[in-house]
Amino acid sequence: MPEFTDLLFFVFAGLTLLFGFLCVANPLSRNPVTSAMFLVLTIISMAGLFVLLHAFFLAAVQILVYAGAVMVVFLFVIMLLDLKEEARRKLNRVALTAGVLAVSGLAAILVRAVTAARPAALALKAGPLAEGDTAPLGRILFQSYLLPFEILSILLLVAMVGVILLSKKDLR
C-alpha cells in the first residue's frame, strides 16, 4: 500500500513541523514545561518518520535516548529551576524575525542539498540500510566507520569527564 505510507509520511511530517513550531513559539502558553513536552512530541513524530523509512532501530533509539532520557533530564532541570520569568516573557519581535530568518536560511540550504544530491539519495535507498535491521547497521558502524565511531565515543567520554570536573567544586 504505497499510498497509505505516503499519507502517513505527510501526517508525521506535518505533526513534526507543528509540534516543533509549538515548541519554540506556542501562542497559548509560554510555559517552559509545555515547550519541553512539545519537543518530546516532535521527537516521537520524528521516530514515526524513521519507522516509515524502515529504520526501526533508529526510531527506537530516538525515542529511548532523546524522548526517554535526555528530555526527562531537561524537564528535571526546568522544574527545579522554576522559570517563572520565562513564562511571563512575551514573544519578542526581534528574536522572532531572527529565528524565522535563520530557519528559512537553513531550510534553503537543506532544499538545495536534497535537490542536488538526488541520485545519491536514491542510491542510498537500495543500500543495506533499507531494511533497517540492527545487524547491517552494526556492521556499517563497526567496520566501515569504525574510526569515526571510536573518535565520537572518545569525544563523549571527554565531555563527560569535563562535566564532572566542572561540576565538582572543590578539586583536590
Binding site: 518530546v40 527506537a60 525515542i63 526517554g68 522544574m79 535491521d133
Partner: peptide, 20 residues
C-alpha cells in the same frame, strides 16, 4: 525486529506520567 528496543523506548516514556 527491534522488539526489546521498542519496549525500552516505551518504558522510558512512562516516566513522564509520574514527573508531570
Amino acid at each position: 525486529n527491534v522488539g526489546i528496543l521498542y519496549t525500552f523506548g516505551i518504558v522510558s516514556l512512562g516516566v513522564y506520567g509520574i514527573v508531570l
